[in-house]
């Protein structure tokens, strides 16, 4: 998993980016739903959908390199998953099921990539707010978003420190033990930070009730 999606607020602007965030979400969901409902017999429709998604990706400015890299991670697993049905019993039904699975999964995945590229995190929060999602959940998501960056940095420092001492490598159980310790340390520090943050929130009058600037609740 790359870190490309989460900080893409300052990314390129295109017609796709200019759409309202809610519409982007619904559009993507719609495409995935349609892709899920098209039966194999209507494969040209599925192909059309794939072409449409591809056009969307290019208009949004997704680079071929990114697309290929993501697909290279995605397709092998899908391939194996799809093949497991005909592997158990090879017949017409199995093979047409597999083909249809490959097609709709690829379309859905690429539609998801489009959304990743055009929906900044903040717009997601605003949309969830607009759709009356529970305020506590939105506040927590915002909190998570903010501290994910900090924990990534901390994680990088911890791993560098470990690598400097252990020269990396070693038998698998050693790597497992070191990695678990890194996660444990991250957890400890983050929990201590959460306590301090809670205190800082109290100092600014936090009483547990969530208030948003856009005045809805």
């Amino acid at each position: 998993m790359g870190t490309s999606g989460i900080g893409s607020d300052a990314g390129s602007q295109s017609i796709c980016h200019a759409l309202p965030a809610g519409m982007k979400l619904l559009l993507t969901l719609g495409i995935i739903l349609v892709a899920g409902l098209i039966p194999l017999e209507h494969w040209p429709a599925q192909g059309l959908l794939l072409a449409l998604v591809f056009v969307g990706l290019s208009v949004a400015g997704v680079t071929m390199r990114y697309l290929v890299r993501r697909l290279a991670l995605f397709l092998p697993l899908l391939l194996v998953f799809g093949l497991s049905v005909p592997m158990a019993r090879s017949n017409d039904a199995a093979w047409s099921w597999t083909l249809s699975l490959w097609l709709r999964c690829t379309v859905s995945f690429m539609a998801g990539l489009w959304l990743v590229h055009v929906l900044p995190f903040r717009d997601l929060l605003t949309t969830l707010r607009y759709w009356h999602f529970p305020p506590a959940l939105i506040a927590m998501l915002g909190f998570m978003y903010r501290y994910t960056f900090i924990l990534w940095d901390e994680l990088r420092r911890l791993r560098n420190a470990r690598a400097a001492r252990d020269f990396g490598g070693g038998p698998w159980w050693r790597v497992w033990s070191i990695n678990s310790q890194v996660i444990g340390l991250l957890l400890l520090r983050a929990m201590e930070r959460a306590e301090r943050t809670h205190r800082a929130m109290l100092a600014r009058g936090w009483d547990g009730s969530i208030r948003f600037l856009d005045g809805k609740d």
Partner: peptide, 12 residues
């Protein structure tokens, strides 16, 4: 507070 990251918890 000492560490600004303890205090700034919002996305913007």
């Amino acid at each position: 507070f000492q560490d600004p990251d303890d205090q700034l918890f919002c996305p913007t």
